[in-house]
Design a protein around this nucleic acid. Sequence first.
DNA 1: ACCTGAACACCGTTCAAGT
DNA 2: ACCTGAACACCGTTCAAGT
Lengths: 222, 222
Amino acid sequence: MPQSSAPRKALGRPPRISREEVIGTARRIVTEEGVDRLTMRRLATEIGSTPMALYHHVRNKEALLVLLLDDYAARALRRPELPAHPRERVVVAAAAIHEALAACPWIVEVLTADDLMSTSALWFVEQIVDGLVGCGLSLEQAVYGYRAIWYYTAGEIVVRTTASRRRADDDRATYREQVFGNLDPDELPRLAQVADRWAPLTAEDTYLDGLRALVAGLLTPR
Amino acid sequence: MPQSSAPRKALGRPPRISREEVIGTARRIVTEEGVDRLTMRRLATEIGSTPMALYHHVRNKEALLVLLLDDYAARALRRPELPAHPRERVVVAAAAIHEALAACPWIVEVLTADDLMSTSALWFVEQIVDGLVGCGLSLEQAVYGYRAIWYYTAGEIVVRTTASRRRADDDRATYREQVFGNLDPDELPRLAQVADRWAPLTAEDTYLDGLRALVAGLLTPR
DNA sequence: ACCTGAACACCGTTCAAGT
DNA sequence: ACCTGAACACCGTTCAAGT
């Protein structure tokens, strides 16, 4: 593995490109043009090199995407001030993760390629787990609770991102309208009842309400 | 659009392949070998035709994947017996959707390419919304509640599927172990405390517990 | 040690032509 | 109306060789 950053004796040819340059250029492409415009070939020409030179600095494309996620987490995850009440601490920590991810639509592909986050995110996980323990959960229950919060958060990001991508595609939007316009009120009465309000209702950002409900539910003994 | 299935006058050349054959063959490839082995070219040769013939029956590859999701939903979503209590009805309907999706790992790519589900799933959505209304929520709150349940469910599927894919990749597994082995107990005391139990704890299936917590939270006025 | 060139084995999709 | 062949404009990755 040549991808260590530890200083070593200057043997052989001096490097022309660095891993940092690879990641930095990849970050620019991805933020400016979207993740599916990032290809190894495109990245290489952008750097002024050849595709194969990249493989000396990152293992392959998937590894590059994970590095990009770590890089983003290190930059975007700014630790918020934490409230004193442990339940609020859980909410604030989760909302901070959510906010950072929501600002970054390309993250979805990487979330599904790897799963959750880099070492920079561990501090947030710690706050959530500790907050849940502070509310009276056992350590084990707190880990399960953190998982549920992460599922909810990741799901919200994935669903909302793809929904907003779909909005660009008129075909499917009108198809959905058609389905909701022709609902049989005998078979699906509630949906027929909200049919005309469905689009605006589901477009609303209710992440925080759902998060509070989930946290409250996790803390209520059943 | 030639992709209607309504009977019409026999004009021109009789079709050699049908949309059903395209979808059926695609389904076989996807279930036997995974979604990324499904390519238009592969599908064409499997059918004994050419790539371009497919474009007469489906608009493009993304549309094919959405058709595949609808096809799967129509087959796999069997309506469960619903309990009398509305809260339990919500849980049972959500769990049924979850179970069908969980049995189908390739679904993740399509969930993120389109979002939620086909007309076959509307019955389940109806049960969830109606159950929440039956518990005392307003129709509006019930729609928000359904969204939260869908985020949680979709997130669980996405995270768990990618986690089990990653398990095949030793590199990242050992990387994670290393991170959790070297946690600083002063900075991240809770995580250090569960470090050695992290892998088994997060591997456990706690979907239903989280779902019950979420539903309970949605029904508790705040 | 680091980089290059050429090649391998693919993709999705369009266009113009055939039956 | 339905299908084909050839082409366009790409991919990620490997291998052998160069400096």
